[in-house]
Design a binder for these strands. Structure first.
Lengths: 128, 128
DNA sequence: CTGAATGCAAAGACTTTGCATCAGC
DNA sequence: GCTGATGCAAAGTCTTTGCATTCAG
């Protein structure tokens, strides 16, 4: 079974790559409908399945109801999402890596959370 | 607008309390259909909304496709889910608390992740 | 009593699937 | 040219909603 890099898959990867964002299925479909007017939602579903199965993209739940998809990078990256204003704050790897190492050591597991999401209340929202 | 502790809401809370588990909407509905045969799924949806809005239960994504619901406890609790065999391993609070404290200090936020889920590969699955 | 919560059925949204056609390789 | 991927439409699943009825306070 040979794998084909089709225009749909390529377009999805490019969109996720260039936008560097977490996108929902519908956002991906909308954004691509300019370039690929006949692109069907079912193809987006199938392509996202394919790409995540093959480790090219990752899936996270950021608390918006549906999963979001993003390009899989070498570097892990992590976010703090404000439960109140939904703002996304970056958590530097230096902050998270020691925690993961600790888990791996104590639990003898390999952590593969490529994108950790922690929920909280941001500074601005705390003040009101 | 007065709040009513109805039999549906009470039954859901009791079920989550006694099972001490993460249950999906359907699991909750099934488990209660013995006690409340006429309980409708739509009531389960509405009740879970209500209970989570009011901080009595929490919602997490454990990677099973649908969210799971559980009783909100004073103590936070955290899990490592094996992406391969789906086994759930507890992460002691002692392991996680310092990490959250670090985030709160550096980001000046309040972390309210009551149930952190980290994905990984467990010891057994690593060996095969 | 009163109005919030429920049951029911219907609508809506989201996701998957079968099959003929298309297009990478 | 093969065969995997796509488009389309239809089916399936999950979730929400309107409305009459029920029941908690």
């Amino acid at each position: 079974m040979t794998v084909r890099m089709t225009s749909a898959r390529k377009a999805i990867l490019e969109e996720l790559e260039s936008s560097k964002a977490h996108l929902t299925i519908n956002q991906i479909h909308e954004r691509l409908s300019g370039r690929l007017p006949s692109l069907n939602v079912s193809t987006v579903y199938r392509s996202l399945d394919f790409l995540s199965q093959n480790g090219l993209i990752s899936i996270s739940d950021m608390g918006v109801g549906t999963p979001v998809y993003e390009i899989m990078k070498e570097e892990t990256h992590h976010h703090l999402v404000c439960s109140s204003c939904k703002q996304v704050i970056e958590l530097e790897n230096d902050l998270v890596a020691p925690f993961f190492e600790q888990i791996e050591k104590e639990k003898k597991t390999k952590v593969i959370t490529n994108h950790l999401v922690v929920f909280g209340i941001c500074l601005e929202c705390k003040e009101y």
